[in-house]
Nucleic acid binder design. Structure first.
Lengths: 147, 147
DNA sequence: TTAATATATATCGCTCGCGACACAAATGTT
DNA sequence: AACATTTGTGTCGCGAGCGATATATATTAA
């Protein structure tokens, strides 16, 4: 038995599981708004700055067009965003919030605090949190550019 | 603008992105073996202990039957595992490695070291690693039981 | 024993995530 | 100008994840 093939030794498995479980924790909060977690991510990007290109959102969320485009199409058919063809460069697609998409921000504003509260029992300390965020950022930064 | 709705403040987004990027790093190593990452996880579980019930694998990987069953069915059609109906309890399904599934362990044994090597440039220090693993385990343990 | 309930696994339908590839518009080259 | 190349986005197909629900078997209650 190769010891390095033990599941318990795998960092990736932990990230994969933690990511799924936290996303599940968001679900009851997002479902009343009719949102999935990736859709919520897109909205967060647009709430920060409305009217962004597909490529901007793509870079920000580290997702390719083959994931983003169908996601945005679903969001458009839900009436959350509007996609318009670029004027200067006609290959581009500009994504803007609809009235409904803007309005959702108000309803979503308590979600982060709800999540934080839900985690109060297992919340990492400030120091652990700092290390966690820093380590993840370092991994992401490294892997993002290694293509 | 609600500050807590900023993407940069979201731990979950970091976990989600890091998880996806690391899974992508596994891809070129797993593809020659004809495996996806979740399939590799199932094999790791069975390499540790062959002949496990669907429920055992389910618990170990923190995945429900509606994810595990189709995954195992695909693996069975690839000839990696064999699924047999339980004898004592006929509701159960026992999952066993095929000859091919056993043989793959030999080919996969270097994957963890390859991943570690690929990360040498951004690898967390021993201390960071310890905090990361410990924090993730704490989050996983907490969320696993909060259903 | 029979009926009610619980449990193990499976099925269905949807959204993602992604490799492979298509396509049009922009840019560079000759 | 004419052609080749690059770029921005989209399409297609498949394998996850997962909520909702189905099915068969096991267990418990009456």
């Amino acid at each position: 038995m190769y010891n390095q093939l033990k599941l318990d030794n795998q960092l990736c498995f932990r990230l994969y599981t933690a990511s799924r479980l936290i996303t599940q924790a968001y679900r009851p909060l997002l479902e009343p708004l009719g949102l999935t977690y990736p859709q919520y991510l897109v909205l967060m990007v647009l709430w920060e700055n409305d009217h962004q290109l597909v490529s901007d959102i793509s870079k920000r969320l580290v997702l390719e067009s083959n994931t983003i485009t169908p996601l945005l199409q679903r969001m458009e058919s839900e009436g959350l965003v509007v996609r318009t063809k670029g004027t200067a460069d006609k290959r581009q697609t500009l994504v803007s919030l609809s009235r409904k998409g803007i309005a959702l921000q108000e309803q979503a504003k308590d979600i982060p605090d709800c999540i934080t509260a839900a985690f109060s029992d297992c919340a990492p300390s400030q120091e652990e949190s700092r290390v966690l965020v820093q380590t993840l950022d370092s991994i992401i930064k490294y892997l993002k550019n290694s293509d």
